[in-house]
């Protein structure tokens, strides 16, 4: 059970630890150049719920923000697991994770968000390239749990560079491991076989693999294949929990949001009630219209198009892009 903070007088609820900070509980080598990281809530509480395909924003102590797919067990509400590949050209991000991040460190957390959800189907074909295995791991666990017919084709440069082979070993011949230095490029047409209405194809990996998959599934129904491109996005300078200013447009007041409080808390402390509920960026109750400034979105709700629009935010978790002042319709 999650622990619950002592009750308080009427006012904001505080029974769930803020989701915006996590502790690095474990760092473990998973393969050549790949470490697995387990994150927990510093207060020992539950972490926000997620489903296979979800990723989190990890705000590293050096100020870089990176996105990583969750690849742990969602039935354990108290831990997230991500796996990080060392990118050869990385300056911050993955290099920081490999060289500097230590167990016990605190990191910022955004999301989880899911733009790669697993849809129900009686049969799945999974294709992973390298570190692209990460979002597929919980999908595979789930497909197995519901008794779906599934097969994984897992490619990589060499066996030593391929993470989680040990965990996947228990699935026997449902898992086809194909290191490039042993078997060459993945033979997608042979793996996919004849198009079938009942099958969903999930693939994650580098661009050439996904391009090859697009060619190989040209004859499949358009809804069959779902892919996520693994790109090492680094958004430097963004995301750390710095203080920022919010102007409440209806009264013209400007308030400061400190490092250790949420925008929702700061607005509430200024005497303006914004109705909220989950306070984890999942329920959507506190949606607030943004008139000016760029929000640093940390919620689980808005998809990329919504974020691009930039016209609303969830002040229970989201903040301002450093340097920007937000003007809210409050």
């Amino acid at each position: 059970m999650s622990s619950v903070a002592p009750a308080q007088q009427s006012g904001p609820v505080a029974e769930q630890a803020s989701a915006s900070t996590a502790r690095v509980a474990e760092i473990r080598r998973q393969a050549d150049g790949v470490v697995g990281i387990v994150l927990t809530d510093p207060a020992g509480g539950r972490l926000p719920d997620w489903a296979p395909g979800a990723h989190i924003d990890l705000v590293l102590p050096d100020g870089t923000t990176r996105q990583y797919s969750l690849c742990g067990d969602r039935w354990d509400a108290h831990a997230y697991r991500v796996a990080v590949l060392r990118e050869p050209s990385s300056r911050g991000g993955s290099a920081y994770v490999h060289d500097s991040l230590r167990e016990g460190d605190l990191v910022g957390l955004g999301g989880p968000r899911n733009s790669f959800p697993l849809v129900p189907a009686p049969r799945y074909l999974f294709v992973a390239g390298g570190i692209g295995i990460t979002p597929l791991l919980p999908m595979i666990a789930q497909a197995d749990m519901v008794g779906a017919d599934w097969t994984l084709l897992y490619g990589g440069r060499s066996r030593n560079s391929m993470a989680f082979l040990d965990e996947l070993g228990r699935h026997g011949d449902r898992v086809r491991v194909a290191p490039q230095d042993e078997t060459g490029l993945l033979d997608l047409p042979a793996f996919l076989g004849t198009p079938r209405e009942d099958t969903r194809i999930y693939a994650c990996g580098p661009a050439p693999l996904l391009d090859a998959l697009a060619d190989a599934t040209a004859d499949w129904p358009s809804t069959s294949a779902r892919t996520e491109r693994f790109v090492a996005r680094e958004r430097s300078g963004s995301g750390s929990d710095s203080s920022f200013e919010v102007t409440l447009a209806r009264s013209g007041r400007t308030i400061s949001v400190g490092r250790d409080e949420t925008a929702l808390e700061a607005i509430g402390a200024a005497g303006v009630d914004v109705l909220s509920s989950c306070r984890q960026g999942t329920c959507g109750t506190c949606e607030t219209t943004v008139l000016e400034g760029r929000p640093d979105h940390r919620d689980s709700i808005l998809d990329d198009d919504d974020r691009q629009a930039g016209d609303c935010m969830y002040p229970c978790v989201s903040r301002a892009v450093p340097g920007d002042r937000l003007v809210l319709d409050l």
């Binding site: 009750a7 009427s10 006012g11 904001p12 609820v13 109705l275 909220s276 509920s277 109750t285």
Partner: peptide, 24 residues
Amino acid sequence: QHWGAEADRFDLGRDPSGHVGFGM
């Protein structure tokens, strides 16, 4: 214990955020 001594009162001055009337 959670809402204060006036929990039985209907009060627009209260912040009802976090109630479980919609579940959680």
